[in-house]
Amino acid sequence: DTINITLPDGKTLTLTVTPEFTVKELAEEIARRLGLSPEDIKDTHNGKTLDPSLTLAEYGITPGSTITLEIK
């Protein structure tokens, strides 16, 4: 299953994830792909900052969802 990550420059990154991924694991994968530190990444969905300890499923993030990435 894939989700879309909207980057600060407007580009989109597509990642393969499972509903059990935590937001922290997602940030780590994004950081790895972009050459950043996971601590520099802030993920938001529907205007809410995502708690790193919760899973994508707990936020109702499903395949095809879009998450907005902010760099701290």
Rank of each mutant, 00 (worst) to 15 (best):
L15P: 00
E70C: 08
P38M: 13
L34W: 06
I41Y: 08
T2W: 14
T12F: 10
I67T: 02
D40N: 11
L36R: 09
G47D: 11
T68Y: 14
T66G: 03
S65M: 15
T44H: 07
S53E: 10
V23P: 00
H45G: 10
T44W: 09
G10L: 03
T44G: 12
K11I: 12
T18M: 05
P19R: 05
R33E: 10
N46Y: 10
A57V: 12
I61K: 01
E70T: 10
P38C: 12
D1G: 14
D9K: 03
A27R: 14
L26C: 03
T68Q: 13
E70R: 03
D43R: 07
D1A: 15
T22W: 01
L69A: 06
I3R: 00
I30M: 05
E29V: 08
I71M: 09
G60R: 01
S53K: 09
L36S: 07
L7Q: 02
Y59Q: 15
P52S: 15
G10R: 03
E29R: 03
L34V: 05
D51G: 02
D9I: 02
I41G: 02
N46S: 14
V23S: 01
L36K: 08
T44R: 08
L26Q: 00
K24N: 05
S65Y: 06
K11L: 12
D43I: 15
I61D: 00
R32Y: 10
T16S: 13
K48N: 14
K24V: 04
L26S: 00
E28P: 00
F21H: 06
S53Y: 07
L56F: 02
L13Y: 09
T18W: 13
I41P: 01
F21Y: 13
I61R: 00
P63N: 10
N46H: 06
I3V: 07
E20H: 12
T55W: 01
V23I: 12
E70A: 09
T49C: 13
N4K: 10
F21C: 10
S65E: 05
T66N: 10
G47Q: 04
I30A: 02
D40A: 12
E58P: 00
G10D: 03
R33A: 12
S37H: 10
D51V: 04
N4V: 09
I61C: 06
K11H: 11
T68I: 13
K48R: 06
D1V: 15
G64N: 06
L50T: 04
T14K: 11
L26P: 00
I30N: 00
G10Q: 04
E39Q: 14
G47M: 08
G35I: 01
T66V: 08
K11N: 12
L7R: 02
T68R: 13
P38H: 08
L56Y: 01
G60H: 03
A27F: 15
A27Y: 15
T62V: 12
A27D: 05
T18S: 10
D43S: 15
I71T: 06
K11S: 13
I67E: 01
T2F: 13
E58K: 03
E58W: 05
E25M: 11
L13G: 01
P8Q: 10
T18G: 09
G64T: 02
E28V: 07
E25T: 04
G60T: 02
L15R: 00
L34Q: 02
S65F: 06
R32L: 11
T6I: 15
S53P: 02
T18C: 05
K24L: 10
E39V: 15
E58S: 08
H45P: 04
L7D: 02
T6W: 11
A27H: 15
K24C: 06
T55H: 03
T66I: 09
D9R: 02
G60Q: 03
L54H: 08
G10V: 01
L69S: 02
E29D: 05
P38I: 15
P8Y: 06
L69R: 00
L36F: 11
Y59N: 14
P52H: 11
T22G: 03
K11A: 10
G35E: 06
L69F: 06
I5V: 13
H45Y: 14
T44E: 09
I61F: 08
H45N: 10
T66A: 04
T12Q: 09
T66S: 09
I41M: 06
F21I: 10
P52V: 13
L54N: 05
T62C: 09
K48Q: 15
T14M: 10
S65K: 05
G64W: 02
N46K: 03
G47V: 04
L36I: 15
